[in-house]
Design a binder for these strands. Structure first.
Lengths: 227, 227
DNA sequence: TCATGTGAAGCAGTTCACAGCG
DNA sequence: CGCTGTGAACTGCTTCACATGA
């Protein structure tokens, strides 16, 4: 079924990333898997079976096999998967085998905290530019990066070739900031303001909404086991 | 279609919370809808049709109608929906018509930022207790709440009747902290540490993982329109 | 023999099209 | 006539069961 050429040179320089239209649900899980594979790698584990993985991840073994088979035949029948192969393959598919430079707009409490987060203290993600509308903040340095005024945004994006952005401005300002980023060439945005933002063309916006997460929890609390 | 078993005890309860087993995907959207309805209400809008809503939310009208019909017949045929009815009904279903007291463990950069977030400055969510392992932080006041030592956790949960928790501790500590919370009686946890945590019985854990969100974005960047 | 990879079955969620009601 | 509410078709994801190959 896999519409891939069974040529022997499987690790050739050519696109081992054959324009995958992976199911979104699978992408999410692959990301989780990658995290766990890296953990196993750090522990010195060389090989795992789908059953072992299932127990660690609290998922089904069939699910894991199907997800991994989407990337090609990564395992060895009768044996299992080689952890380092998994890490390499997943990293490549998800696009995290190269560095990604990010900018962050809105250096308030949340913005500062995110900029200082461990995620950005090692590859592949690195924050290389900070912006804030408040002139009093401009010039201050957070996480080793100086805060610039909004007027410097477009130029920085072009110069530093930034394609990803994080938006931690008040809800009111978020839609216009996202439009601004998209216009400057940003291709993907992680937005922390609790508002629905009209998606600019050519730019994906993913909103992380604390209140929404909490409401889903309260629903479960209300309509789940043991009242 | 909602009442599959017409002769059961479906009308037994007065309140419109008939032990809904709503699809998780629908719960997520209802939460989003509620946000928008509140916004419309604040703007003075009294009535909307599913088509108008679809345009504002960037969703399909059929989806909205189906989701809302899960809660009963909230609309008026030929007219549309009454905004205040929607707000009341959704709030009740999601369980946000009453106050929810939360605790937060791990008052570092991220923890402090979350505690100061606008979400907690008005109902229904309120942070009423902070905890940190670091003795140097104990006693400090953040967002009007004093930081307590971990040893005070179980007692506070019981005394203040807290059922929800936010965990912003380092990944290493997160699993044991979650076990601790569950043992103390916490029923739902929002975890910000990028680790897979074995779900304790009787307690739902929802993990918000920044790195995971970013990886999904990079995948889209890599395998989506206009390279 | 073992665990993978995969068609096929099963299920959930979404979209469609129209019946029903104001 | 307009818009909701909803069975029915449809799509896509998950689970199953087994053939495949080390």
């Amino acid at each position: 079924m896999a519409p891939r050429r069974p040529s022997e040179e499987s690790r050739a320089r050519g696109p081992a990333t054959p324009c995958h239209p992976l199911p979104p649900a699978a992408v999410h899980r692959l990301s989780q898997y990658l995290r766990c594979f890296k953990q196993l790698e750090a522990q010195g584990v060389r090989s795992v079976s789908s059953l072992q993985l299932a127990r660690s991840f609290h998922l089904s073994a069939a699910q894991i096999r199907k997800d991994l088979s989407l990337l090609g035949e990564l395992g060895t029948r009768g044996v299992g998967y080689d952890v380092s192969v998994l890490v390499r393959s997943l990293s490549e598919t998800l696009g995290v085998d190269t560095e990604h430079r990010l900018l962050l707009v809105g250096v308030g409490n949340l913005g500062s905290a995110l900029a200082l987060s461990p995620v950005f203290q090692r590859p592949p993600f690195r924050i290389v530019a900070l912006f804030d509308r408040d002139p009093a903040k401009v010039g201050r340095v957070v996480a080793g990066v100086p805060i610039e005024p909004m007027t410097a945004l477009a130029r920085s994006v072009a110069e530093k070739q930034i394609r990803l952005g994080i938006v931690t401005v008040p809800s009111r300002a978020a839609p216009s900031v996202c439009r601004l980023l998209a216009a400057a060439g940003i291709r993907g945005i992680l937005n922390f303001a609790p508002v629905v933002i009209p998606p600019p063309s050519g730019c994906v916006i993913r909103t992380v909404d604390l209140g929404l997460q909490l409401e889903e929890l309260t629903y479960l609390l209300l309509h789940a086991p043991s009242s």
